[in-house]
Design a protein around this nucleic acid. Structure first.
Lengths: 238, 238
DNA sequence: TCAAAAGTGTTATGATTACACCCATGA
DNA sequence: TCATGGGTGTAATCATAACACTTTTGA
């Protein structure tokens, strides 16, 4: 978890972590049609009681990517998730006590897989819908806004949206994901045709069960198909 | 200029700069139809004689963006140029002597404006065509490759290519810029129509002089027009 | 007059959009 | 049987690509 720098400088030196540079991570989830973010409440230090992005320090012998993966694993228990760097945030006043540059990451998780690690109680960690995001510590609102703009671009250039959905999903669920993230309404028939024509989806020959309407076909996204297509010059553009 | 970390640690503390974190910058120029990169030769330290990206340290009270601007000004004397952050490069072994994370930037300069600052002789600084890039210090080849991939994406999403051209240019010069950066051939009539339909260019009612063929109209890119269009929901997509 | 690049016109093809409509299923 | 979402069809419009062609100018 993110802690205040000055409190822990001695710790850091002893635990062999980098000083003056941290990782902060925007973790996106998708539940009941809403895009959500995982936030943590700070239990100590100058920003006690305020919510912020999960973050932490980078070990001396660890890449920044590995540090971000480690932090996510410590927080969520998930090993396999989508993670990419956003950029470094380097305003000299972003952190009030000292000069600390942070490297922003964003992750996409399947909520079905997500379990909070023991040691984190409900009051310390929580999912927030976009419209309910509170005032966050330091420049974390700014990092969050950047990550959302970035996600909106990325989701139209590369097939990464699937990382937010369960393994098996319907075409309409996928469309609702795009509508929610991009903040637009889409046409169902046109969406179906467009996404199917890309041939990125594996038809599972399965149907929804227990729904009170005609059951929809289930699909999964197969990374292997995508790589085969990109090698041939295919380019995902939504 | 970029120096070896350990040699200068004492200097750094005295000059109030951040330790363990640097800036490196890929400076793109466009000359005679070729995309070029500005490299500097290291005069001292463990990588003496090798070429690398221009870079340097971040002052304690200076944002990373401001540090990058300062380094470019020191190197080129240019005040106004296009500059954007790429990302942080944080492999633990990227720098052989110590753990140093670097924040990569890329800049686009108009070669017509460019003058080397006094103090840099021709042997210390040079423009290299893409196909002539030598082995660079540390992970600088990796940063360079990343920046080129990034530029290829960015130039198709936002009208930033103009920053590589003179203030006044012809449509064919603009097309050749796109062809060179993207590594593709384009159709002249179609390119003309597409770019003109966007209404991003200001028709200067001027023509080329001294060319041994029909003189082409000159255009300039007007950021004000672009901002007015983006406010209305216009989106540059090439 | 010729080479070289400027610039216009035309047509085929494919993508996008908007919207009407039928199908399957549980409550 | 009705509501709900699943799924197909179709026609208009727009963007793209390929390429033939005319225009202007200095050497």
């Amino acid at each position: 978890m993110h802690k205040d720098a000055v409190n822990n400088k001695k710790d850091l030196i002893e635990t062999d972590a980098m000083t003056s540079i941290t990782i902060d991570c925007v973790i996106f989830g998708f539940q009941e049609g809403s895009l959500e973010i995982l936030l943590v409440k700070h239990a100590e230090g100058i920003s006690k009681g305020k919510w912020g992005l999960p973050g932490g320090w980078i070990k001396k012998k660890e890449s920044t990517d590995a540090a971000a993966y480690r932090l996510l694993r410590e927080l969520t228990g998930l090993d396999k998730l989508f993670l990419e760097q956003l950029k470094a945030f380097g305003d000299p006043d972003r952190f009030p006590l000292d000069r600390v540059i942070t490297i922003g990451y964003y992750a996409l998780v399947k909520r079905e897989n997500y379990r909070l690690k023991a040691g984190f109680t409900a009051s310390e960690v929580g999912w927030f819908k976009m419209k309910d995001i509170p005032d966050l510590i330091y420049d974390h609102n700014q990092i969050l806004n950047f990550s959302l703009r970035h996600l909106r671009n990325r989701i139209r250039q590369a097939p990464i949206g699937f990382n937010l959905l369960p393994e098996k999903f319907t075409l309409l669920e996928l469309m609702h994901l795009y509508e929610e993230i991009l903040g637009i309404e889409m046409d169902k028939p046109n969406f179906r045709r467009k996404i199917l024509k890309m041939k990125l989806l594996r038809d599972l020959n399965e149907k929804q069960v227990g729904v009170s309407h005609r059951a929809a076909k289930l699909y999964s996204f197969d990374e292997k198909i995508y790589h085969k297509l990109t090698e041939k010059g295919f380019n995902f553009e939504f």
